[in-house]
Nucleic acid binder design. Sequence first.
DNA 1: TTTTATTATTTGTATGACAATTTAATATAG
DNA 2: CTATATTAAATTGTCATACAAATAATAAAA
Lengths: 239, 239
Amino acid sequence: MTNNNNFSSISTSSRSLHVQVARSIARGILSGELAEGSIVPNEMTLCSQFGVSRTALREAIKLLTSKGLLESRPKIGTKVVNRAYWNFLDPQMIEWMDGLSDSKYFCSQFLGLRRAVEPEACALAAIHATEEQRTELSRIFNQMVEVTENFDLDSWTEVDLSFHRLIFNSTNNDFYLPFGNILTTMFKTFILHSSKHGGVCLDEHRLIYEAIMAGDGDRAKAASVDHLQSKKHRLPEAI
Amino acid sequence: MTNNNNFSSISTSSRSLHVQVARSIARGILSGELAEGSIVPNEMTLCSQFGVSRTALREAIKLLTSKGLLESRPKIGTKVVNRAYWNFLDPQMIEWMDGLSDSKYFCSQFLGLRRAVEPEACALAAIHATEEQRTELSRIFNQMVEVTENFDLDSWTEVDLSFHRLIFNSTNNDFYLPFGNILTTMFKTFILHSSKHGGVCLDEHRLIYEAIMAGDGDRAKAASVDHLQSKKHRLPEAI
DNA sequence: TTTTATTATTTGTATGACAATTTAATATAG
DNA sequence: CTATATTAAATTGTCATACAAATAATAAAA
């Protein structure tokens, strides 16, 4: 219901050649190996380096340009754009960061944004969620209860993500929607499988859930702040 | 200094064919004319519709795929992805929205996010800004004072944007960086040239500025909240 | 009825050619 | 010698065509 998309999960085309090339170049940029402001080798050189046709290579470059990493001009070449223009609020970019920088630091940076955005999202969801979305939220919270009773980490991860994702959707604000995907990607890419959580965490979610269902934005916000302040969420803490 | 990129501003290639085609298709999707979940015409059909080669068309589709709007598979075709995957936190996407939906509503939605993110950005900037960034912030605030004394709307807009943009940069948090570009694009695309502001607004900025320079995160945050609550900021209010 | 093979459709990739853009070198004029 | 205009060269931009790969739909076989 929340996804009428029958295609395989979001980044279907890992096998696609231009995506592989794009990932490789992206990681070169993100790691600093290809310096900001520098000109990357011209198309024919890159083609032979990667052993692909110009068609595939150019599609890769277009993808990276769309993320704010590259910019091309005739006669000049293709340049690595200033970091201030890189769009880190993009799931694919986040995937590409995997293993490049210190994961703990990267996750704590993300938490720094999440703490700003998610409480407000909860408040907006409490006010703007449709009846259909509230029904769905009930369904998901019931699943959460069930999973907690018979605990299994993978099941918990899935239902936990569905819960937070649905909250972003329920803001019915276009600018909050992408955080559902960003959060999902962060979890799937950087999640720590350590996990000393369970029962207590359910209660935190319950407070958020009940406040949203009651239409109480302030309480939902406060509950979310508490949840994100708690040491139990899964992404690594602080630096 | 904040931009070592000599290329013309961010979306240089409006003249680029595949970008024009991408914009046209994107607006079809964003307006709802091309429904979520539907299959768009196949490549050859689109090529003749737009009068471009398959190369150009495919580069356009790759661009839209990168924004989360489309997804392609052999034999199936290219599908409009569910709205929940569209990445509205992308300057190009925001440009494409121009004139499609009610601007006031769109801007008020953005304000709903900005109120969550920017106060926290100010707090982080107060704590994490480098000496260089603090020097630059002083320079910009001085410009603000000058512009206020001899008021000119375009000059004000420019320095105002620089101010807010530098704050996002000064968080030194990768996930806050993109908001500088997003804010800039929102202003340049949707700004109301009505403008009944001037002196008073400078004081609001002064409070933010002084708190950041003093390294007082809480005060910076509070000042930013006040600024965004005030009726004087330029994007349309509420719905 | 179920499984397997075939076929058709669409995107994916490769190649070669030429156009457009703009820096840099060169020639020309003063 | 300097300044300006012209020319040339390098790189991306666009086009056309051909074939490969993937997969849904269909047909055939068990």
